[in-house]
Amino acid sequence: MHTPLIRTARLADQAALGELDRAVWSPLHAVQPAPQPPYDPFFDSNHRPDHYLVAEGEQGAVDGYLRLARPTPLACNAHVRQIQGLAVAESARGRGVGRALLRASFDEARRQGATRITLRVLGHNAPARALYEAEGFALEGVLPGEFLLEGAYVDDVLMGRAL
């Protein structure tokens, strides 16, 4: 299995990341409605390229991304980074792209001075939860029925790990 190149996003990735985001949208992991045209830009003042790690596949294709950001602007939790999005192209699934992005996020969070990393995942997203557990995340809390998605209440699961 070929390990993907993981790098920080560039402004030039905006179109490819937007396309990937729309292609992988699913109620399995999204709480926002499916994107509809006209599409908003992928990057904005709160979602800057330096918040994203990109998995670059063959011929420079964007195979996935992970958004890593501070959960709040508070100084008292500046030691925490939060994964606020992880997407892998359908064509790249099963090749270790998600795992490589997670592991790169641990290194990047440490580089930024973090000692802890957290995330939120929907309770019914068993594949993502299994990947996070395999990479050392522990269940830290559950908000039961936090979201109503397609007529069903879905738990918001909080996970975290030390770096």
Rank of each mutant, 00 (worst) to 15 (best):
E133D: 01
L148D: 08
A92V: 07
E90G: 11
A130C: 09
L139M: 08
G136A: 09
A126D: 13
L149K: 01
L149T: 00
T115A: 13
L122Y: 08
P144L: 04
L119K: 05
R99F: 06
A100K: 07
G94Q: 12
G136I: 00
F137C: 00
G123C: 05
A134K: 07
L122F: 11
L122W: 11
L131H: 01
D107W: 08
G123T: 08
E146P: 03
R120S: 10
L139K: 00
A89F: 07
T118Y: 00
A134L: 04
F106T: 10
A126H: 09
G123W: 02
V88C: 08
G145L: 09
T118V: 12
V121Y: 05
G96F: 13
A138W: 00
R103N: 15
H124Y: 06
A100W: 12
G151W: 00
L101C: 13
R93V: 12
G141F: 02
E150G: 00
E135Y: 02
A89V: 11
G96Q: 07
E135K: 06
G151V: 01
E90R: 14
E90N: 12
G123M: 09
G113S: 12
F147K: 07
V121M: 04
L143M: 12
F147P: 02
R103G: 02
V142L: 04
R95D: 12
F137D: 00
L131M: 03
G151A: 01
G96K: 07
S105Y: 05
E146I: 05
A114H: 11
G145C: 07
T115G: 15
A100F: 12
A138R: 11
V88T: 13
F137T: 04
R111L: 14
A130Y: 10
G151K: 01
R93F: 09
G98K: 02
R103D: 04
R120P: 03
T118G: 07
T118A: 01
L102P: 11
L143T: 10
E133M: 00
E108Y: 11
T115S: 15
E150H: 05
Q112W: 14
H124V: 09
G141C: 01
A109D: 10
P144A: 14
R129L: 10
L131T: 00
V142C: 12
S91R: 15
L122T: 04
F147C: 04
R111S: 15
E150W: 06
V88H: 14
E140M: 03
A109L: 08
V97W: 03
R99V: 07
L119D: 02
F106K: 09
V142A: 01
A128R: 08
A130L: 06
A130S: 13
H124T: 09
R93A: 14
G141H: 02
L139Q: 04
G136R: 03
L119G: 06
Q112E: 15
L122E: 08
E146W: 08
A126R: 13
R129S: 04
L139T: 01
E140S: 09
V121W: 06
R116V: 05
